[in-house]
Design a protein around this nucleic acid. Structure first.
Length: 409
DNA sequence: TCTGGGGTCCTAGGACCC
DNA sequence: TCTGGGGTCCTAGGACCC
């Protein structure tokens, strides 16, 4: 009888990632206080309506501060809270440094998010020892060389490894092998299970499921009829079933690119909204060209002053990566969708991507298309060489709107 | 001096075709 | 003079993740 080869998967998760990385950076530039050791958060600015907590220190957590709450409310819980503004470039490079170390331990490392990765450790025992020993080595190396701590979860598949890394923090290695599911995972609240969010947890409560164990032992046919595919998936997770593989390729090519922003004031004029959309189109299209993709679908998202969200999308006749072309479509979509009420937030997202070298030039407007393309190339080149603000559209001069809105990487 | 921004995937419903 | 029914494509919205 053939022996079934068991996989060994690790999930590596940076503890309070943004805050840890901010702390390491501050120590490096000579600050004496480690913000991890005092009540502190990484968060935006309330004056520009970006005031929410993105990450918190452990001392801040002791005051009851939670991720996602407003800075205003966090300050009410702790008056001398330190607030560090977010620095996305720092987080990107910190995440990359960690990936480099991980890649020394396996050829199969999947970057799952800016601060999380899966590592396939199957057949690697010979090189670095048994999984627990290796995980400690990795964890301690990251701490020593990069200055921040991680949790590592170990199991036979991705979901169990991910659940394991979420056990007690920080700076810990945990296992959650199939034999440990009953004792370590089933007592947890069902909302702690990967892919069970607030809405599903509430629906589960209604039929008497409150722990992961309750879900695992529930009649699968009832789950299937009430919760469809997602229900079946989380039921399998609760029973430790997951056959996804660790894939190192996904992270770079995205299926869509989008940027959005909450504007510092409510927009009531169509012209101002168009200007914001242009500034967003600039970054979305630069990212699109950067990853050598062309978009087939453009979507505009509006959030009004009452936080009501709606969106409108359209398929293009032919794929494009041109700022002017995508902006033109976005403007039309906005005009069709906008109900005229004050706007808090605007976004553009493009999808249905194809390789920009492959796509067919539309036969109409070929000259215009070529001119736009040349313009985009020139602007991208100048911005790469001299900085993103080296060249700016004239309409943004003396405007309250920034000429480029949204992250570029 | 309330409530971010970047993603993926799924589903429901309508249009349209045979 | 009761209401077909697959299949596909498209859009809007919502759930979830970080």
């Amino acid at each position: 009888m053939e022996e079934i080869k068991k996989q060994t998967i690790m999930h590596i998760d940076v503890n309070s990632a943004y805050l840890s990385w901010e702390a390491v950076f501050r120590l490096k530039i000579g600050e004496t206080v480690d913000i991890r050791e005092i009540p502190s958060v990484v968060g935006g600015n309330s004056a520009t309506r970006h005031g929410i907590v993105l990450a918190k220190s452990i001392p801040a957590k002791k005051y009851g501060i939670i991720t996602g709450e407003t800075i205003h409310s966090a300050l009410k819980k702790c008056r001398n809270l330190i607030i560090a503004p977010p620095n996305h470039d720092l987080y990107l490079s910190s995440g990359r440094s960690m990936m480099k170390i991980l890649e020394e331990y396996s050829p199969f490392v999947e970057r799952y998010s800016i601060d999380e990765a899966f590592l396939d450790y199957t057949h690697m025992d010979y090189h670095f020892g048994d999984p627990v020993t290796a995980a400690h080595k990795i964890k301690d190396r990251i701490k020593k060389e990069l200055g921040f701590t991680v949790n590592i979860g170990i199991s036979t598949n991705k979901v169990l490894a991910k659940m394991a890394s979420d056990f007690s923090k920080p700076d810990q290695v945990h296992t959650l092998y199939p034999g440990e599911i009953k004792s370590k995972m089933w007592p947890l609240p069902v909302g702690d299970l990967f892919m069970v969010g607030k809405a599903t947890a509430t629906d589960f409560q209604k039929i008497g499921i409150s722990t992961i164990g309750d879900l695992a032992n529930y009649d699968i046919d009832v789950i299937r009829s009430k919760f469809r595919r997602n229900g079946v998936m989380v039921w399998e997770f609760a029973n430790g079933i997951d056959d996804c593989v660790v894939s190192s390729e996904d992270y770079l090519k995205s299926k869509g690119v989008g940027n959005s922003t909450t504007i510092a004031f409510d927009v009531t004029e169509r012209k101002i909204a168009h200007k914001v959309l242009l500034a967003i189109a600039e970054t979305v299209c630069m990212r699109l060209r950067d990853q050598k993709s062309a978009a087939g679908v453009v979507s505009v998202e509006i959030k009004n002053k009452d936080f009501i969200k709606y969106s409108h999308q359209a398929k293009l006749c032919s794929n494009t990566d041109c700022t002017n072309e995508i902006f033109k479509t976005a403007k039309t979509l906005f005009d069709e969708a906008w109900k005229g009420e004050p706007i808090r937030h605007l976004g553009i997202r493009v999808s249905d991507l194809c390789d920009s070298n492959v796509y067919q030039k539309s036969l109409f407007d070929e000259k215009l298309h070529d001119r736009n393309k040349a313009l985009d190339n020139t602007i991208d080149h100048l911005r790469r060489r001299y900085g993103t603000n080296s060249i700016v559209r004239a309409c943004f001069i003396k405007s309250q709107i920034k000429p480029l809105i949204g992250r570029l990487n």
